[in-house]
Structure formats: C-alpha cells, structure tokens
Design a binder for these strands. Sequence first.
DNA 1: GGGTACCGACCGTCCGTACGGTCACGTCGT
DNA 2: ACGACGTGACCGTACGGACGGTCGGTACCC
Lengths: 244, 244
Amino acid sequence: MVARPLPPGGSTGPRRDSRRADILAAFTRAVAERGYDGTNFGDLALELGISKGTIVHHFGTKDRMLRELHEGYMRRRLAEVQVVWARLTGPAERLAAFVHLGVRYQVVDRTATVAFQREVLRFAAEPGMETSQSLRGEYRELVERVLAEGTAAGVFRPGDDRLRTLQLFGSVHWMWTWFDPAGPREVADVAASFVETFLAGVLVDRARAATLADRSGLVAQVVAEAVAAGRAEGLDGDAGHTPG
Amino acid sequence: MVARPLPPGGSTGPRRDSRRADILAAFTRAVAERGYDGTNFGDLALELGISKGTIVHHFGTKDRMLRELHEGYMRRRLAEVQVVWARLTGPAERLAAFVHLGVRYQVVDRTATVAFQREVLRFAAEPGMETSQSLRGEYRELVERVLAEGTAAGVFRPGDDRLRTLQLFGSVHWMWTWFDPAGPREVADVAASFVETFLAGVLVDRARAATLADRSGLVAQVVAEAVAAGRAEGLDGDAGHTPG
DNA sequence: GGGTACCGACCGTCCGTACGGTCACGTCGT
DNA sequence: ACGACGTGACCGTACGGACGGTCGGTACCC
C-alpha cells in the first residue's frame, strides 16, 4: 500500500481518480488493529504517503469516517442476506445461515468486521448515526423474524426471540477477541460447532442440527457462495490481524 | 463522592486513611462509561475533589490502574466460583451456574464488569498483564473442564469444549452493549433464556434444561447467594450505566 | 475559470506524567 | 516526656508531545 504513480485515464470513479477508497481502507485496517482512539490522521497519511490535509479533504472529520465505515459494512451484510434468502427458504436453514455468516465474517471482509465490532457503540447515541443504527436494527429484526416464523411453523421450540438473537450475536461478535485466522482452527470448524450447539438448543427436531452444521452441507455452501459473490463485487480481502 | 473531612483515628487500613479505593472506583466508573481512552486524570481528580498528582501518587500510571482493575475483577469472579462449586457438584448444574453467573455480572459489580469487558484486550499482550491474563485463562479452563467432565459422564453431547466455552462467553460478554439494568428486562429473565437455549443444546437429556434455567430453582438460588456473599464482602453496588 | 485532488505549515487544546514541596503522623532515641 | 526523623498522603504547576482540525495555496482537468 505505497503511493501510486497515478495511473492514466480509464478511471472508474465519478471524477478523476482519487485515493479516497485507499484512505477508508487504511482507516479500517487501523481501527481494526488499534481501535478508533488509537487511530490518527498522521499515521494514516504517513502510511499512504499522502498529506493529513488530504484525508480531511475527503472525509472532513474522524467520526464521519467511522460513520461511513459503519454504514458500508452493514449494507454489505444486508446485501449478503438477500442472496442467501433467495436460495434458502426454511426457517431452520435461514437461522443456521445466520450463524454460518456471522462466523465467516471473521475471515471475509475481516478488517472491516473487526473494526466494526470493536466500535459498534462508538457515537451510537450521537446524531448522524441514525442510519447506521437502523441498519443494525434491520439485521437484528431479520433474525428475530426467522425465529418467530420457525416457532410458528413448529420447527423451533418456543422462546424469547429477541434474547435468542442477542445470544447468537454475542457469540459471533465476541470472536474478534479470540479468533486468529492464521491459527489452527478454521472458520468452518467454528461455524459447525456454533451451529450445532445453538440449533440443537432451538430446534424441536434436534437431529437436524448436524445436517445444518455440516461444513460441506447445503447451508454452508450457499453461505460461502453469497459471501464470495460480495467479495467479487470489489470488497477487500485484506491480510490478517492477530488479537492478543 | 465529595471530599471527606478526614474522619478521626480508628483506621482499619495499614496506615492512615486514604482515598485510594475511591480513586479506583471512580476510575472504574469512568472506564465503564467512556472507555479507557475516554478516561483522563483531570476529570477524575475534579470529580473526587483531589489533585491529579494524588492519583499519580497512588497508582503511578494509567495502565497500572487498569491492570489493578482487571486483576481485582477476575479474583472476585474466581472467588465466586469457589462458593458455587461447594454447593453444586454435577456438571450440568455447574455449567448452568456459569451462565447464570455471567448474566448476573451485568447487575452485581456492574461498573467493574462493563469496564472490564470493554477493555479486556487492552494491553493484553503487553508485559505486566500476565497475571490478569492467566486469571482469565483459569476461569476459562474451569468451564472447559466442566464440559469435559459432563461429556465423560454422558450427560453432555460430545463437542468441542473450547469452542462451546467461547460461544458461551461471547453471549454474556456482549451483554454490556445492549443490556440496560434500568430497562424492562430483568437479568433473571435473560439468564433463564440463555441457560434454556444453551443447555438444551449441550445436554443429552434436554428436558433438564428447563429446571436448570428456572429463575427460582436451585442453581439460580445458589448463584444469587454466592454473588450476594461477594457483595457483602465490601464490593461496590454502584449506580447504573446505560449503553446506547 | 471553476471545481477537484492534494499539499504542508500551523494552531489550540488536551493529557499523561514529572517534580518539588507541605503537612500530619508515627517512631524511637534519649 | 520530647524533639529529631522518616514516611506517606496530597497539592500545584509545568512540560512536552500528540492529535484533530484549519487554511492558504498549487496543479491539473473539464
């Protein structure tokens, strides 16, 4: 990620080429590694070989940058759900897919995931964050609705949908503190274990949990494809970050 | 929390009275509310009506204060487990107790819990944090061992103990981002739901989950007593903190 | 010539920490 | 009994660096 020699014409952006995207990517990486407070314009500029003023020119303020990161992240996640839902229609499959997805985020779009999860609450109450907050709410409601539908259909044991959703989110959001993509444990293994335990706790017919958890089963495959599709659309792959 | 008029003699401490404990309590509250980076000596001193220099005198540096917070917190948690284990011996009961405990921390010793969970990773890799880290490891191993014992005894379905432990920790650690002690949902309800779902996913005899989750059942009672015991020993009660 | 990307010097503020000093005590030798 | 001495709580100030953001300007393209 060194200063580029400004390639000729053929630009894809709205006007000219700009390092805007580079800056946001570097910011995301920095937040993932050092947190929001630990990230500063000076280091960013140095790393990108540009001036601090350029960053300000593109984003204005630091919190605006975080907001953009938040919103972009949630939009990508919601887009993925659309892809998955087109191919999986049963509540059990969809619920399992949410778990698979949540775990996979630790690998695909990883820096953004870590950055996002570290700083979800930052400015959450401040004005300007309404969009980001409502996108989060949308995602949560999707899961809640799946749980409600499954219960109504008699495939899930009755329970508090909201609490179950938050229980699930916690499991996967916390992963950034311990999961090491370079470590011996693969995401697929984690996903399989999480699905197996969580679904077995929710399903009426517990035997189905194993199928839904299968790392080469239908759900896992659909999820992998959905996630690969988003990636092909131009999202970063990014190198690892290793938590303590 | 205003400057005291220095009460007469009868001191209990090693020498004279000191505001050391007050400072750590205020620090904990600040970290819970604003995070480590958002906490500064100036505000703390102002709030306590003392000088910034006094804080330095007692703790030296900011990270040393955080370390003390970390270690104290984990020691209290480990002490509670001892109490619980003396009264609950079955793997299922003990596992359920860990869930009940994890959820309850959001209410008892709340500020310390939030402060701790917000900043678990801070300086985790730095030298000086080994003690805090090993205490965390101890706690994790206790849960893992319970899972292993339960599986060996045939009461738990086989699975990856480490991953299940981390799945559980995630659920409860994440609570600081959404649980509002002043809100309509009581901890006991959350605990019941979490135990019900998680234990139903792990137990061979799933019907037992309901009993273990019962908010007025044996496990819940023992946990409540253990936690109350710790509280009586002089830990703070502290007022609420409301996340976004 | 108007808009856009970018530069680089600069400013005001904040914050952790260092440091020198005061004061109330407890201790101990005499 | 009393004064010298040591100790630990606490104060006030000042420093030095970092950081977010401002601003006037240049180069380049439509």
